[in-house]
Design a binder for these strands. Structure first.
Length: 111
DNA sequence: ACAATGACCCAAG
DNA sequence: TCTTGGGCCATTG
């Protein structure tokens, strides 16, 4: 969309490397919209409408829980995609979350 | 311009 | 550890 905020969220999510995940709050923080984690989630709702497509399955909440899996075409697709990247998920929660967590701030400071 | 929405986060019980 | 309630703020109708 024209909205800068959504666009920034989408671009940032696209930067998430294979086999890694990030959180809504981390994205919001990286964009300077610190308390607006909800807006990140809201932006993800539009993620399937933008191009190129956004790897929304690599974005979870701060607990590592697949909170957005019901927004996919199939409820089990999000978990399948993550498992395909080597991420272990049990009871909709990412195991060893710290190990697979990717902080978007690292990418921003890298620029 | 106002009210409602939400793929979140934090604190308290 | 799990559940509840309030706050947050851009987007949408």
């Amino acid at each position: 969309m024209d909205s800068n905020f959504y666009n920034q969220v989408h671009e940032l999510v696209r930067l998430v490397p294979f086999g890694k995940v990030t959180t809504y709050g981390a994205i919001a923080n990286a964009l300077g919209a610190k308390g607006s984690a909800r807006l990140v989630g809201y932006a993800m709702n539009q993620s399937h409408l933008v191009h190129p497509k956004v790897p929304a399955h690599r974005v979870v909440n701060r607990n590592g829980m697949l909170s957005g899996k019901f927004h996919f075409e199939d409820s089990n697709m999000m978990q399948s995609l993550l498992e395909n990247e080597g991420i272990v998920i049990i009871a909709d929660k990412i195991q060893n979350f710290k190990n697979v967590f990717w902080d978007p701030l690292q990418e921003l400071t890298s620029i």
